[in-house]
Amino acid sequence: RIAKILGVSNSMISKYENNTASPSLDSLCTLSKELCVSIDELCGLQQSGTVSLIGLTDGQADCVRLLIDAFHEYNNTVRKRLSDEQYRVLGQILAEFLK
């Protein structure tokens, strides 16, 4: 299936897997989009999870970014209650889902 997506032969995929050939940048981009992972993660440079914004509207992608920032802020400050900014972010997320 990957060979078909990339427009290459199965033997070429085998070469990629055995490190005897490397895919082009276009192939890496196509594959990362298909698998919903970053190119860094695909190449083993980044092991932590990533969030794919592919297929989201601009508003939805903004909400995801805001939510991640809010969690980072919370984790850095270890607050027992949500800040005004976090409430604002949650309100924006709720509004986006109610559209």
Results as ranks from 00 to 15, higher is better:
residue 2 I to K: 03
residue 2 I to S: 02
residue 3 A to K: 01
residue 4 K to M: 11
residue 4 K to L: 14
residue 4 K to C: 09
residue 4 K to Y: 09
residue 5 I to A: 07
residue 5 I to H: 07
residue 5 I to T: 08
residue 5 I to Y: 06
residue 6 L to M: 01
residue 6 L to C: 02
residue 6 L to F: 02
residue 7 G to N: 00
residue 10 N to T: 09
residue 12 M to K: 00
residue 13 I to K: 01
residue 13 I to F: 00
residue 14 S to W: 10
residue 14 S to H: 09
residue 15 K to T: 03
residue 16 Y to H: 02
residue 17 E to A: 03
residue 18 N to P: 03
residue 19 N to A: 12
residue 20 T to Y: 04
residue 20 T to A: 00
residue 20 T to I: 01
residue 23 P to E: 02
residue 23 P to G: 00
residue 24 S to E: 06
residue 25 L to H: 12
residue 25 L to A: 14
residue 27 S to D: 04
residue 27 S to E: 07
residue 29 C to V: 15
residue 29 C to Y: 15
residue 30 T to Y: 03
residue 30 T to A: 10
residue 32 S to V: 03
residue 34 E to K: 13
residue 34 E to D: 08
residue 38 S to V: 04
residue 40 D to N: 09
residue 41 E to C: 11
residue 41 E to S: 15
residue 42 L to S: 04
residue 42 L to F: 01
residue 43 C to N: 07
residue 43 C to E: 11
residue 44 G to S: 00
residue 44 G to W: 05
residue 44 G to A: 01
residue 45 L to D: 08
residue 45 L to Q: 11
residue 46 Q to D: 10
residue 48 S to F: 13
residue 50 T to K: 10
residue 50 T to C: 12
residue 52 S to T: 02
residue 53 L to K: 02
residue 54 I to L: 14
residue 54 I to A: 10
residue 55 G to H: 05
residue 57 T to W: 02
residue 58 D to M: 07
residue 59 G to P: 00
residue 59 G to N: 13
residue 60 Q to K: 08
residue 60 Q to D: 07
residue 60 Q to S: 09
residue 61 A to T: 00
residue 62 D to F: 04
residue 63 C to F: 04
residue 63 C to Q: 01
residue 64 V to T: 07
residue 64 V to H: 04
residue 65 R to L: 07
residue 67 L to K: 06
residue 68 I to V: 15
residue 69 D to P: 03
residue 73 E to D: 14
residue 73 E to Q: 11
residue 75 N to T: 12
residue 76 N to I: 08
residue 77 T to E: 13
residue 77 T to L: 13
residue 77 T to F: 07
residue 78 V to D: 13
residue 78 V to E: 13
residue 81 R to N: 14
residue 82 L to E: 09
residue 82 L to A: 15
residue 86 Q to V: 06
residue 88 R to I: 11
residue 89 V to A: 06
residue 90 L to Q: 08
residue 92 Q to H: 10
residue 95 A to R: 12
residue 98 L to Y: 09
